[in-house]
Design a protein around this nucleic acid. Structure first.
Lengths: 323, 323
DNA sequence: GTCCTTGACGAAATCGATTTCTTGGACTTC
DNA sequence: GAAGTCCAAGAAATCGATTTCGTCAAGGAC
């Protein structure tokens, strides 16, 4: 690697002057010319490691997500990256596989790498960001919020989304609207279910609620199994709210096996089914604005990195129902 | 941040001794005890930036991909990450959006960040890795190979995959098998098409080939448009080989609009349609082993990082046809 | 002509961990 | 008891960029 000293030697100036040229401080036109020529000839790229060590700041933000193969999180990552890039930051994407240990490891790495900040889609409510907070490293929780109150968060209005999904199915004439939600330990799963419960209680009374509620795991197989169970009931549902995209893919599978499909069987889903546009007809999609979520989180984080020390905020984005 | 000096002061030893304890060099049991106690009390984490500057090595590998929202690349990323993690490396994921400028920027960053190596899924054949090679930084091309011969690559046997996809459609009794492939500037698109062409020429003669071949852009809309065009022909195809998953989603859409669907219309696709299991019935999938591709690339890269200086190799994985 | 300001720029300190060199004490060996 | 060996551990150099501080010269004011 070419260093600043070699450039300085070649240009016949001191390393300090080279640094000044690189960072836009005042130098004579002649020095600048010499330095730029030398740098170009030697193909010099400043060593970011040295720069970071000296400057204590890193221009890297960490994005920790539970599942890189879930399109929701990749869309979110896209949003974060767009904003970060525009501000001159790079993004390090870390995939935890919903494993709290891996999450903890990545948080430690973020700390030790002196990343400028971290955006975390928590694996579960108990995610421990105390070390980041203790070291004053900016953190933003996204999608799910954290138990502690002193951390910024960006979420969507899951309860309202769940409610409107269920409402629209009732409005379309369905009478037994089931719910397949995520793990009970996960906030979004609880809230989406709560929205459904509210609408269902209003339209159909409290009595059938427990029968038609299933907790699954936010994955394809879980959705398939839950739907199969529901269809095997003595009084099966005629519609369902499904709390994420992966489970919906599984649920559609199970419906298909039973000779059913939307729009005959009502289906409302949280989040888009990206590569299934052909099979999506007749499905009501609650649009979770993943990319916007990422953008909002990045914006918030960049403000904090910029020095904003105001009290923690939570930004809640609205869901929107498509078709 | 707590530094090694503070730990040393607290333990009553020199920083050198603290470093020795951390890195497993010889120290007396007593010193070790003191240092560990001090480090624990102060919640000390060694500064990776300083460590990297001194050691010149980074334990970070860069993974540059053209589209983070394509499940093929996320699966590949998963494979890379698994291997890298097992070897103690972290992975920085960079998304270029198929833009050669962004790719070049990320390559520069990889260089300046002193990453241990780079795995690149090239945006196109002209991707310029010369700076990496010039600086002896290990590079592995994945999915698509590069024009230059001195860079390791991991690819799949695209031609064989294309051929067997087409063969299996002919074997199933289809007679007019079309092909929707990617941009003509992209190697994989050319090879997959070439495989189809070979099979088609054998089964149906050369004459209809040009009619039934469409170049698109490897994206959903391109696939939809290409299929719509094919269906509007005076003599439309009764089956098609589609060169990637995204275009297949679009093609299925177009088929649906025309009242067609597999298995009545034969469809063979390169790569899985991850969230469309329900709609995938009757489709022949050429399984592109994305995760294995990532694992192989990471393995190769780690060998190079480990010092393997043998001549460049290309690893070709076989595709497999599912159902 | 002298004093003061201004500005460019070099020397050297700095960031935090690693590593080489050196030192000094304990232990052998004859 | 003197000389030699071994080893733990401290002092200081090192990685490469940034930044403070100080110097020197040119230009302006009176």
């Amino acid at each position: 690697m070419v260093t600043i000293y070699e450039v300085a030697a070649r240009a016949g100036v001191s390393p300090a002057t080279v640094s000044r040229v690189l960072n836009g401080a005042k130098v004579s036109a002649e020095s600048e010319r010499l330095v730029r020529a030398a740098a170009a000839e030697l193909d010099f790229t400043p060593n970011r490691t040295a720069r970071r060590l000296r400057g204590q700041h890193s221009a890297v933000i960490g994005l920790i997500i539970p599942d890189i193969e879930n399109p929701f999180f990749t869309a979110l990552a896209r949003g974060v990256e767009n904003r970060a890039r525009a501000a001159g930051f790079s993004v390090v994407l870390c995939n935890t596989d919903e494993d709290p240990d891996r999450e903890a490891t990545y948080i430690d790495i973020a700390l030790a790498e002196h990343m400028a900040g971290v955006i975390l889609a928590p694996a579960d409510d108990a995610s421990d960001v105390s070390r980041l907070v203790a070291h004053r490293r900016p953190v933003v929780a996204v999608d799910r919020s954290l138990a502690r109150a002193d951390v910024d968060a960006v979420t969507v209005d899951n309860r309202a989304g769940g409610r409107s999904a269920a409402e629209s199915l009732f409005a379309a004439g369905f009478t037994r609207v089931a719910c397949i939600t995520g793990p009970s330990s996960v906030e979004t799963a609880q809230l989406r279910m709560a929205g459904w419960r509210q609408a269902a209680a209003r339209h159909a009374g409290e009595d059938y609620l427990e029968d038609l509620l299933r907790y699954a795991d936010y994955r394809v197989d879980g959705g398939r199994a839950a739907m199969a169970e529901l269809l095997a009931l003595p009084e099966p549902p005629d519609a369902a709210v499904v709390a994420n995209n992966l489970m919906a893919a599984g649920a559609l599978d199970a419906l298909h096996d039973a000779g059913l499909a939307p729009p005959g069987f009502g289906l409302a889903v949280f989040g888009d089914l990206p590569f299934a546009s052909f099979g999506r007809r007749g499905i009501r999609v609650v649009d979770v604005p993943a990319r916007e979520l990422g953008e909002a989180a990045a914006t918030l984080l960049l403000e904090r990195i910029g020095g904003d020390a105001g009290p923690a905020k939570t930004v809640v984005l609205r869901t929107r129902e498509q078709r």
